[in-house]
Amino acid sequence: MESALSLKPIVNVAAICGSLRKASFNHGLIRSAIDLTKQSVDGMAIEYVDISPLPMLNTDLEIDGKYPPAVEVFRQKILQSDCFLFASPEYNYSVTAPLKNAIDWASRPPNVWADKAAAIVSAGGGFGGGRSQYILRQSGVYLDLHFINKPEFFLNAFESPPKFDDEGNLIDAAAKERLRAVLLALKAFTLRLQGM
């Protein structure tokens, strides 16, 4: 029988996409990250957490210390995760409204983001969604989230050769390797924060 000490810890990751469009490039990054954990990143399991059912933040919906059912489910998934992978598209130099809404719901007392590791990836035009990452990092300061600093992952989705197929799946080998490096850094930092 294998001893408990020889078992590798599993890092449970909640993956959150700021785009609600199923074929979005940022959804493609999350799908690729999930595939990578099954192929070449041991000891890590990623669960995609859908933020589309969340109502817009309104504290009138908090009744007798309880949140709406969709919010309660979301908060539990965040609470039970070891760390987070954000796929953050850039809208108007910032994060998307659905992503900010999800962040704010999970920060309501008690803040379920606190003292956990996180990484951000993004795909888009120009700077590849990079400006949204800076805004998300600023929110993370108040949330007590600990973002990995390196490697960074911004991907210009419109450069040639194509980075994604017609269904939004990541097909660029170099980008997949960069994404794998992000996952390995997130795993290492999470275990470090947990004292392992």
Rank of each mutant, 00 (worst) to 15 (best):
L54C: 05
L179E: 03
L191F: 07
V182N: 11
S32K: 07
S19G: 10
V141H: 07
V11C: 08
Q133E: 11
Y91M: 02
E72Q: 13
A157E: 14
A14R: 02
K176G: 07
D144P: 01
L54T: 06
A102G: 11
L179Q: 04
D165T: 09
K187R: 15
R31H: 13
V71H: 07
D35P: 05
F164N: 12
P161D: 06
L143N: 10
T96N: 09
A33L: 08
L145M: 14
P9H: 15
I16E: 08
D42K: 15
R75G: 04
E90Y: 09
S81H: 12
M196Y: 14
L85H: 04
A118R: 05
F164T: 05
Y91K: 01
G28E: 14
E159M: 11
H27G: 03
C83Y: 02
L179K: 03
S107I: 00
Y134S: 11
P69M: 08
M56N: 00
D165Y: 08
G124E: 12
D64R: 04
D35T: 00
A119Q: 08
F147K: 07
N149Y: 01
Q80R: 15
I46H: 03
Y134K: 09
A87E: 12
I30L: 06
I51H: 01
H27K: 14
S52V: 02
D82L: 06
A97G: 04
I46D: 06
K187E: 08
V41T: 12
I148G: 04
A45M: 14
T59N: 10
E152F: 12
L7M: 10
K77C: 01
A106C: 07
R21G: 01
S24D: 10
M196L: 03
G129T: 00
M196D: 04
K163Q: 15
D166F: 06
I103K: 06
S81K: 14
I46N: 03
Q138I: 02
G129Q: 10
F158H: 12
I34Q: 12
W105M: 03
A173P: 03
R180M: 10
L54E: 06
R131M: 03
I135L: 10
A185N: 12
I120W: 10
C17G: 11
P151Q: 05
E2Y: 00
V13W: 02
Q76C: 02
A87G: 01
I148A: 06
Q194H: 14
P53G: 03
V41C: 14
F127V: 04
G128V: 04
D35E: 15
K38H: 13
R21F: 01
D64T: 00
V112W: 07
S132R: 12
Y48L: 00
I171F: 11
M44S: 12
N111M: 09
C17F: 01
Y67N: 12
P109V: 09
P110N: 15
N92G: 09
M56Y: 03
N12C: 15
S52F: 01
L136V: 02
F164H: 12
G140R: 10
H27L: 10
G195M: 05
K22Y: 01
V73P: 01
P162R: 15
P89W: 13
A174S: 04
R178L: 00
L136R: 13
S52Q: 13
K116H: 11
A188M: 08
N169E: 14
G124A: 14
Y67M: 09
